[in-house]
Nucleic acid binder design. Structure first.
Length: 480
RNA sequence: GGUGCGGUGGCGAAGCGGUAACGCUGCGGACUGCAAAUCCGCCAUUCGUCGGUUCAAAUCCGACCCGCACCUCCA
């Protein structure tokens, strides 16, 4: 049973067949670093990180390349505003990028190539295109001649005529054809530049990805991913450059994530309706944000607001609770002297575990349907809760619970979710002691049927952010 | 104007030819001193509208209505 993925190139789901057995080369367009990342930037990070995690779960060796665009008009503009050197500005936002990406549990890429560190490669690439007749120079600018590449438009499903009909392209009379795009831009006064055969300048927007993907993944590789708005012109132009230059198909599968919207409108920097991830993380745990991003299929639009994140948080908590209860029961059984008693539900529980695994894989195999796989997770959680409520004991229960815990953790890690205990960490030992003392006092009150006092203590703890749960084995507590 | 995507219960969201998953919310029940957590049950005769194909359609086809996106920097 293999994976199928929706390929923008064919507008169809296709079986994912790696070019080399057991290996996947994957390139994801990374951010232009002139600001902190916003929620819209976070979606492809989380989504394609999950794709990568799942491929690795299946045993593929994944080479994951994500670029940073650190040479760009917007960076230059911003740097000017802030009176900082552009490259330094870009570098500092790259650092900030990692703060956010790490919070979201995004695994580090295999390689993070930057434009500024690949000038020679880029220049060589442009030169090659020029030599092959796909590019022409005009007074220090170099353009790609779109109509020299026969398949131009195959990704976005447009023809050159369509594009002209659009007529929103700004007219540059010097270009041979309106759709031609810049490979190399001549530096204006006061702009940063690199020397080249065409004089001082900097790369055009698309050439970096063609150059760097080729360098690290080869002229042909498996997966190229990014946001939907990159289909045209960015990815279309990448294909034109790469395939014109190399003469072979660039990426076999093109994956594109849908947008985050605010009130049904695209979130974007130009519309100014964006939320910095950083600000969202002040209000919600990163886990919740990640969970929320994965609760919708990656190609669908996702509308954002606080209430939706809150609902996602509640759902995640349910998943965490099941894990916590499982842990408790497991460690309880490890000290259980009655080991050896029969445990009727264990076999059924094991069957359900295997069923969860099967369904999870089935969901993920279908174009990385994380929304469905999360539904499987909720069923899994119920299975666990139900089994725990049946009071499992004995020699058969413990290994069954361990098996459940293992799979739960494993599948969680595919989604980048951790279910670790939220209880007070070592740093709050003082607080923990305080809480335990209050619980002890409440216990005494309860024993003497002084429920008024007991409830007062519980309210007090609640104000401290502590939730109590009375169980037959005593009172347990957790942080809200 | 051209090209795509989408409209599923109060909200969110799967399903994409075999008779509506899952989560949140709400309601009822079990458990509890009361809670919390958990479990059980209920909440769409119906999937934008109207037609068509089919033994069978939320799922396919057609028309229409809405919403969004791309064609320009944008994840």
């Amino acid at each position: 049973m293999g994976i199928s993925v929706y390929n923008t190139l064919s507008r169809n789901k296709e079986p994912l067949i790696p070019r080399k057995a057991g290996k996947i080369g994957m390139y994801v367009c990374g951010p232009t670093t002139y600001n902190y990342i916003h929620l819209g930037n976070a979606r492809p990070l989380v989504v394609f990180d999950t794709v990568r995690r799942y491929l690795e779960y299946l045993g593929f060796e994944v080479t994951f390349v994500q670029n940073f665009t650190d040479v760009d008009d917007k960076i230059i503009r911003r740097a000017r505003e802030e009176k900082r050197p552009p490259l330094e500005l870009a570098r500092s936002y790259i650092e900030e990028y990692f703060v956010d990406a790490d919070a979201l549990q995004v695994k580090r890429a295999t390689i993070y190539p930057k434009v500024s560190e690949h000038m020679d490669d880029i220049i060589a690439f442009v030169k090659g295109l020029q030599e092959k007749g796909f590019a022409y120079e005009i007074d220090g600018d170099v353009y790609f001649a779109v109509n020299r590449f026969e398949e131009y438009g195959k990704l976005s499903g447009r023809t050159l005529d369509d594009l002209q009909a659009g007529a929103r392209v700004e007219v540059d009379d010097r270009k041979r054809y309106p759709g031609d795009f810049a490979l190399w831009k001549k530096a204006k006064p006061d702009e940063p530049y690199w020397d080249s055969p065409w004089g001082p300048g900097r790369p055009g927007w698309h050439i970096e990805c063609s150059t760097m993907s080729c360098k690290y993944l080869g002229p042909s590789f498996d997966i190229h991913a990014g946001g939907f708005d990159l289909v045209f012109p960015h990815h279309e132009n990448e294909i034109a450059q790469s395939e014109a230059f190399n003469g072979v198909q660039m990426a076999k599968y093109w994956l594109h994530n849908g947008f985050i919207t605010i009130n049904q409108e695209k979130m974007s920097k130009s519309l100014g309706n964006f939320f910095l991830l950083r600000d969202i993380l002040k209000k919600f745990p990163a886990q919740v944000v990640r969970f929320y991003l994965l609760a919708t299929h990656y190609r669908s639009p996702l509308d954002f607001d606080d209430e939706k994140l809150e609902a996602a948080g509640k759902g995640l908590e349910r998943l965490q609770t099941a894990y916590r209860l499982l842990q408790e029961k497991k460690s309880g059984l490890e000290n259980d002297s009655r080991a050896g008693e029969t445990s009727p539900g264990a076999q059924q529980f094991r069957d359900q575990i295997n069923e969860a695994r099967r369904k999870f894989e089935e969901a993920m195999n279908d174009d990385f349907n994380t929304a469905l796989s999360i539904a499987v997770f909720f069923d899994f959680a119920r299975t666990i809760n139900t089994y725990l409520a049946s009071g499992p004991t004995g020699a058969e229960a413990l290994p069954a619970l361990k098996e459940g815990e293992e799979l739960y953790t494993l599948l969680g890690s595919v989604l980048g979710l951790q279910f670790a205990d939220k209880k007070a960490g070592p740093t709050d030992t003082k607080r923990a002691e305080e809480v335990e003392a209050l619980i002890q006092k409440r216990q005494e009150a309860k024993s003497s049927k002084d429920y008024r006092t007991a409830d007062a203590i519980r309210d007090e703890l609640k104000k401290m952010g502590v939730i109590l749960e009375d169980t037959p084995g005593g009172t347990r507590w957790r942080n809200k």
